[in-house]
């Protein structure tokens, strides 16, 4: 159960960081007896205790951990892949900020579909363009949500209404 030991350590770190952040909460004369720091303090202690419990259990149960044989290499690769997907997706935020909603959705669909193994062909671009158009119709036109405008491009899509 090496994973549980790692988790236990990370959670202890989270608990102490959270506790440290509670010291930033202002105390007021309007406060009730428990105050705004009350629950956060309890939670950080609780998390620390549970994390210690998790670690202790992992140490004690260590010999039984036989069936957890996993191909470490493959696992690693898939973790990398997963983080890669998140990174590609996260690029949507700057793209939407700079270019605006419709181009950003187009790029997002192309990028993720390609990352997920779609063949890069005219078909992919056509589907992405069609998808961006449908999303624009749905969110901007039908639901009336002003999706982000790009700061670089003139706001040609969300300004325009049918």
């Amino acid at each position: 159960m090496r994973k549980d030991l790692v988790a236990s350590a990370v959670l202890l770190l989270v608990a102490s960081l959270y506790y440290w952040a509670t010291t930033d909460i202002p105390t007021t004369t309007l406060s009730d007896d428990i105050g705004p720091r009350g629950l956060p303090n309890v939670l950080s202690i609780l998390l620390a205790l549970l994390a210690i419990g998790l670690g202790a259990r992992a140490l004690l149960a260590a010999p039984v951990a036989a069936p957890e044989i996993e191909d470490d290499k493959e696992k690693e690769a898939s973790t990398l892949r997963a983080f890669g997907l998140l990174l590609v997706g996260a690029l949507y935020v700057p793209a939407a900020y700079a270019l605006g909603y419709v181009p950003a959705i187009f790029l997002l669909v192309v990028a993720i579909a390609a990352y997920e193994g779609a063949r890069v062909s005219w078909r992919l671009f056509a589907v992405a363009a069609g998808g961006a158009a449908i999303f624009w119709l749905l969110f901007v036109q039908a639901l009336g949500i002003p999706q982000p405008d790009g700061v670089l491009l003139p706001s040609m899509f969300s300004e325009f209404r049918l």
Binding site: Y97, V140, G144, I145, P146, D149, V151, E159, R161
Partner: peptide, 14 residues
């Protein structure tokens, strides 16, 4: 940061 430049158009419709 000015992402909301476009008004709540659909909402405004009514």
């Amino acid at each position: 940061m000015d992402m909301n430049r476009r008004s709540f158009g659909g909402l405004a419709l009514g």
